[in-house]
């Protein structure tokens, strides 16, 4: 998808109509942050079609719907992304800048820790381990792209089952969503688009149906610590048994 002044309105329309692929929609959501012409085109398209939604007869809502929302609301300062797929770069709240710096520091130290632990991996590989969960990652067309085995001991193995075409200035990054509260967490980068064992992410024990995902990020990994690029493959884990 190439954005230009010519097709901007059309892409905005197709985005609002839900006609873009997941990767293209993610691209639009990223681009919107810095491209005000696109942001305006999307806003206009939304307003154009909105009456088709607002003129609908209201449904009778379950009496406990509000309660189930209210009990799940996080405190505002620690608001988490609800899912990887819908993630967009986080804009810090006013007066919350230090929280973001903390986030960065965490991300940087996590990268440093993962490098250190990669060295220790040679040692830990000697121990035979069984994965706790296995996730088969599919692309948008439903084709198998990769398999993730998460050992739950800070180590996950990612086996690529197809060739990925990764531009020189990009890198593949592996993510998982341990919980809505934590939001998407990076498992690490796949250098040179090769299978790898990633280590050092101290995350909760992987669960059944946990989401795993590979995105295309700028070289060195996502600058925000959250997925920002198009999704190459994703899938839900199954408990190994």
């Amino acid at each position: 998808m190439k954005l230009s002044a010519d097709n901007l309105s059309h892409i905005a329309d197709e985005y609002v109509l839900g006609l873009l692929s997941e990767a293209e929609a993610a691209e639009v959501e990223n681009e919107i942050e810095r491209n005000s012409a696109l942001a305006n085109a999307v806003a206009e398209a939304r307003e154009r079609f909105l009456p088709l939604d607002t003129n609908i007869d209201p449904a009778a809502v379950s009496p406990d719907l509000w309660d189930s929302i209210a009990t799940r609301l996080p405190e505002q300062a620690t608001a988490a992304e609800p899912s990887i797929a819908s993630v967009s770069p986080r804009v810090p709240m006013a007066g919350n800048d230090n929280a973001r710096t903390g986030w960065r520091a965490t991300a940087i130290s996590a990268v440093a820790a993962s490098l250190m632990l990669a060295v220790g991996l040679v040692w830990s590989m000697a121990r035979v381990a069984e994965p706790l969960v296995v996730a088969v990652l599919l692309n948008e067309a439903g084709e198998v792209q990769a398999v993730v085995e998460d050992f739950g001991n800070d180590t996950a193995s990612i086996r690529l089952l197809t060739d990925f075409n990764v531009p020189a200035d990009r890198t593949m990054q592996v993510w998982t969503l341990p919980s809505r509260e934590m939001g998407p967490m990076s498992l690490g980068l796949l250098e040179d688009a090769h299978s790898a064992r990633l280590s050092g992410s101290t995350l909760p024990k992987p669960q059944d149906a946990q989401l795993y995902e590979i995105t295309l990020e700028q070289a060195g990994g996502s600058p925000t610590g959250r997925p920002t690029g198009p999704i190459l493959a994703k899938g839900f884990a199954k408990l190994a048994r």
């Binding site: 719907l65 929302i69 799940r72 609301l73 608001a79 609800p82 899912s83 819908s86 809505r180």
Partner: peptide, 11 residues
């Protein structure tokens, strides 16, 4: 809608 309201809240 439940997920959406949580996102409305956080975003």
């Amino acid at each position: 809608v439940q997920e959406a309201f949580i996102r409305i809240w956080t975003h």
